[in-house]
Design a protein around this nucleic acid. Structure first.
Lengths: 168, 168
DNA sequence: TTATAATCGTTGCAAATGCATCGATGTCAA
DNA sequence: TTGACATCGATGCATTTGCAACGATTATAA
């Protein structure tokens, strides 16, 4: 991102072109979904790099770990619903973490289809190392946002809340 | 999606952040990088589903198409730099689009390492169909944001601009 | 009860992805 | 000019991903 070297600055508006239509009237930079995706990727990668380099943890791993560490007895489907992750992704992340000795799986006695995920002592120890990194990073982001933070949070809520289905 | 059934409502806001034992003091919902990622995925998927179902276009395809359609003669590395996409991803998306007859590749005569990507007539026609969908969707998002939009855009800029590297 | 449907977590599989590397081309300094 | 190095786009490869199954379990209704 952002290393245009031999690239001439975007002409941005020179395609006169035939069809009086779309071909030149759209600017990706003004497209909120795109800008949001780029921003999200940028932030996630900053943090993910640290997790990966220092702890060997991927983003799916991290999400599962955080959810389990804060949520008590959590099932895969809880993660799917609350962490915005495909269930197969959550399932595999959980299995990886179990294989690494960070997580345990138990059968839920009330509903034996469900799995209860919980941290092992090793998992707890890892989280104790991981969370300060996340908190430091969050403070960094807060600093970048400054007074915009409140509006930003509100906007994130607003944009996700889909009041009605977008016409198909 | 989002049908929490047997899941108790998230505690949401009760972090004493005693920092002593991280294992329960962190709330993913208060973590900006996460919220941003979820919002971005939500928005991208809403639009991507339409593109996929109606036009067989993936998000990487879409980004390449938009960039080519607005940017004139564009190389793969331009896309990498300006669309926040891995170059192999951009390269393969371009190849897919060429295979579908939507894009053309030419050698850049000035620098023969570069590829010039341009829309075929079929590609232009597709964009003429695609862009109104995107514009409608953008209006939908604007409606959701309302007066928050300005602050939201500013916040996206602020959060991405990493003034200095986060300590590694 | 029994039959039918729904849900949970896992897994097979094809496609997509990230990374490293390659050949081709270009740049630059000696 | 030559040689060392950089850049571009493509690709091999291992991993990850999304989706559609599946078996096991539970819920619902006849």
């Amino acid at each position: 991102m952002t290393a245009p070297r031999n690239t001439p600055p975007p002409p941005a508006a020179d395609l006169g072109k035939a069809s009086a239509a779309a071909s030149q009237s759209f600017d990706l930079a003004g497209f909120t979904a795109y800008r949001l995706a780029v921003a999200a990727q940028s932030l996630s990668e900053e943090l993910a790099r640290q997790y990966r380099d220092r702890f060997g943890i991927s983003i799916p791993d991290w999400r599962v770990l955080v959810h389990v560490s804060t949520g008590g007895d959590i099932s895969v489907r809880d993660i799917e619903a609350r962490v915005a992750m495909e269930k197969s992704k959550a399932s595999r992340a959980a299995s990886r973490l179990v294989a690494r000795g960070l997580l345990q799986k138990h059968v839920n006695d009330t509903d034996r289809r469900l799995v209860r995920l919980s941290l092992t002592p090793e998992g707890k120890a890892l989280m104790d190392a991981l969370l300060p990194v996340a908190e430091t990073y969050q403070r960094e982001i807060d600093a970048r946002l400054g007074p915009l933070k409140e509006a930003f949070e509100a906007a994130l809520d607003a944009v996700v809340a889909a009041p009605e289905k977008v016409p198909r």
